[in-house]
Structure formats: structure tokens, C-alpha cells
Design a protein around this nucleic acid. Structure first.
Lengths: 116, 116
DNA sequence: CATATATCTTCGAATCTTCGAAGATATTTA
DNA sequence: TAAATATCTTCGAAGATTCGAAGATATATG
């Protein structure tokens, strides 16, 4: 199979892995600090079991790494630059503009980009 | 709902829209030139009906724009920088390295990035 | 006007994703 | 050792996605 198809398939896998709002938020949280499952669940206001499932998927695709300390599983980004690249993608949210103002986007960009 | 959640939802929509190898390839083809449905189908070696379906989705998310000339529907990127951002994402394919060599990625990066 | 071409839309089956609930495992504390 | 805590995995239902096939539309050509 031509290289372009192989590489396109890999890229699509990455996009699929990021194609859930909770997982985007998990990655942006981890951009500023390592956290355990409950730490993430608290900050994102999501049930821990759901955060755990998302982390399982991110782990399967090597986007996060795990470190265990006692009964806590701490997670961090395998490639911290990933968080920045995602923030760069906000440029394409702006263009679409369905119910999201430029001001809102700018605010979030600063929150997420600032923590890096 | 907090801004971060709204923006994360929009970003996830973008990722979902890009989460198919055919659509990644369509976008990279359109980075270098406007094409009609059959033109794309030929270059990507895909059935025209399938390319049309993918274009429908990209259109629904305003990633491509249509121009009609007779019975031909020509498509171009709404935001040409999108193609470059996707190529930047190749950095994260490299990190994962499941059956894809750095050489293959570099080759594709040049093909896609060069056409811009 | 009849036909061929280019594209779009709809349909239904197969597959994948998501979500919460329930159960399993490992670690700490009493 | 028993109970509590933190996390993971599995299960099954609901919903979304993908794909090719078939039918609809619009435009060009004979």
C-alpha cells in the first residue's frame, strides 16, 4: 500500500482518538500537570469510571503514560506538544463559528495555552 | 456551560470530521488544487460515490467549499491552512510508531507539505 | 427530445462508540 | 484479616458511522 494511504490511516487514528470532548479536556488538563484518575474526574466534573475509560483509550494509543504510586494511577502526556497542537486547531473552530464567539475561543486559548 | 466545555466540544467535532483516512487524503489533495468529485476519485483511487459522501460531510462542517461549473462540482478548502495543520500532526504519528517508519512519514510530509 | 454524464441522496446491513452498571483487582487502613 | 479506596474491565443497550447499491436530479450532447 502506498505510503500516503498508510500515513493517512495513522493520522485518522489520531483524530479518532481525540474525537471526544472529554478526551480533549483530559489532554488539556494533563498539559499543565500530572494527575490521577480522581484528580481528573474532580477537575472535569465527570464520573471517575468514565474518565478511566477515556484514559484507557488514550493509553492504548500511547497518548498518555501511567505511573503508579500505591493505589493511585497518575497520568501524563507522552508527547506534551500534543496539547499545543490541539490548541492550534482552535483556528479552525473560529472559521466555522456555529454558536461559538471569537471571545470565547480566545479565552479558552489563553487558559489552555497559558498552562504550558 | 463553561467555555472550556463548549470549545472542547467544537474541537472534538473537528477531530471527528477528520477521523477517516479518505477524508484526510481528500483534504491533502485539495491543498494543492481545486478538484471535482471524479478528479478526486481518480487521484485517490476510490469510487466516486464514496468521495461524494465524504465531501458531503466535509461540506456540512464547512471544511470545503463548492463551486459549480456545468455538471462538475469543484471543491476547495475553506481554510487552506487546515492542510498544513494536519501535516503538523504527523509529529504524533512518529511518536506512536506502529508499523510506520520515520522514513515513510518524512516522505509523505514532503509530498503533502511541498504542494502548498 | 432522448440519452449520457456527474453528482447527490436515501436505504439498510455491518460495524464501532458511548455510557452507566456491575464485578474484579490491588492497595491501604483499621 | 476485614473494610475502604482507587482503578480497571466487562457487559449490553442505545446511538452513530461506514459502505455499496439503488434511485433522484441536473446538465450537456446528439
Amino acid at each position: 500500500m502506498p505510503n500516503r494511504q498508510i500515513v493517512a490511516r495513522e493520522l485518522a487514528e489520531i483524530f479518532k482518538t481525540l474525537a471526544h470532548p472529554d478526551r480533549v479536556r483530559v489532554i488539556e488538563e494533563l498539559a499543565s500537570s500530572e494527575l490521577d484518575v480522581n484528580g481528573l474526574a474532580d477537575r472535569l466534573d465527570l464520573p471517575g469510571t468514565r474518565v478511566s475509560q477515556h484514559l484507557g483509550k488514550l493509553r492504548a494509543h500511547r497518548m498518555v503514560e501511567e505511573r503508579r504510586d500505591g493505589r493511585h494511577h497518575f497520568y501524563r502526556l507522552t508527547q506534551p506538544e500534543l496539547a499545543r497542537w490541539i490548541v492550534d486547531g482552535l483556528a479552525f473552530v473560529e472559521g466555522r463559528m456555529q454558536g461559538v464567539s471569537e471571545g470565547q475561543i480566545a479565552t479558552v486559548r489563553e487558559m489552555w495555552a497559558g498552562s504550558n
